[in-house]
Design a protein around this nucleic acid. Sequence first.
RNA 1: GGCCCCGUCGUCUAGGGGCCUAGGACGCCGCCCUCUCAAGGCGGUAACGCCGGUUCGAAUCCGGUCGGGGCUACCA
Length: 482
Amino acid sequence: MTVRVRIAPSPTGYLHVGTARAALYNWLFARGRNGVFILRSDDTDSERNEPEYQDDIVGSLRWLGLDWDEGIEVGGPHAPYQQSLRFDRYREVALDLLGRGLAYYSFATPEQLDEFRKEAQAAGRTPAYDGRFRVDAEVAADRVASGEQAPIRLAVPRPGSTTFNDSVRDEVTFDHDQVDDFVILRSDGSPTYHLASTVDDVDFGITHVMRGEDLLSSTPKHIILTEAMGAKRPVYAHLALLMGPDGKKLSKRHGHTALNAYRADGIMPEAMVNYLALLGWSPGEDETVVSLEDMVERFRLEDVTKNATIFDNDKLEWMNGVYIRELAVDDFVARVAPLVEADLRRGLSSAESGQLAAIAPHVQERAKRLTDVAGQVAFLFGDVEYDDASWEKVMTKPEAPIAVAAAVAGLATLDDWSTTGVETTLRTMLEETELSARKGFQPLRVAVTGSTVSPPLFESIEVLGRDVAVARLEAAATRMGH
RNA sequence: GGCCCCGUCGUCUAGGGGCCUAGGACGCCGCCCUCUCAAGGCGGUAACGCCGGUUCGAAUCCGGUCGGGGCUACCA
């Protein structure tokens, strides 16, 4: 039987990193087994759905490099893959269950239910609704026929229990008195999540349901429903939730929860995938940088950890640096050029593109995020902006004017304008002025780049060009009062 | 409150009775390299929540306890 898995986000918010991780695990599982990966939209909540979110979900998944075989925007044999378009089907299932006595119209009032739950809780019993206010089928039918609106609840078999074998958690059992007679169809005729989701899983032939642990205790409901529909239950695998640094469920106050924010912050999709994959899964050996092919080949549900995992930005950033350094230089330039232009708020001329390409290898190994680069190369494409602290720290020292003057003298007449030419000239300057490299070069760096921190000095000067470099040195000399 | 899940360095993890004086990675600290900052190299810091039990032997098995998390809607 071919493996069929799905990810089913609700378009009520941007793609959450936790959902992205679940999507990745499903994708890895499918790809490693010749399976089918499906993207479905669980958009039953018309109040909170936004097209913007749907677009973000699709776009973010694609950005990560995850493709799907059936679903939103690609269609497939079970189209549409959008719950809001399948309400008739859910109603049909609910009515069928009703007809077979497996579900019933519920006339319990919210007050009754509320009171029941309060009493149960006060008595230390479980507050799950057991259907005690259920009325006779004929009575119910009459009331509905006379126009009364009522939700349909599933009649959970009592007494009873549901046991299932979770692929990551092993055997889990829920006694049915922990499971209430939950609503499957609201009184307005719309389906609840539980109904829509399990009908789709059945209809779409889903074989493995991999999802967040927050749905673990809903699983018996889904199993009872599935089997009431006469279908075979899928294999379940519940992934532990992502936590913030304080151990609480990852939320906005911890920083970013939306995947798109990481993209905007200069995280590479390849790094994100690698990081997310290892957040709760281990290939078993002492490896941290793993190729996508390796992941596909080695991913197994049994190797997914049960522990809740804390999202660690530092490690993500480190890994992003690793991936940035692995890039071919021209690929790096291609990814970074638009960011530099955005920062400049203008396009790069072809000469400037050449400068960017020339300095690229030197900033590539210094970047942790793609967005770091614009700031590191800004000195090439505009006037110098002196960083106050840098100026104060370096240019007020007695050796600063000496070093700058000597550099101007040397560079202005340099014939061989190359990295080595610049270096030789400046090292000669060092000997003449009897300054250490540190003391002699820092003033030049500040004069030329505006900061004590920059790409390597000789390369920076070379790429800047003689005219600009010398002009900046002279301007700095003037500013120092010499 | 009830039910369910989970507990190895600060974090992600390896480990599945002796290979564990517990390994790797991030972070942090130190040294080296060095024109700054990074990168890189080398070294260091740091964990089996606790209590019992089983066993010749327990991070590994069992029980309890404590701690964390999830669910407990006509939300998803």
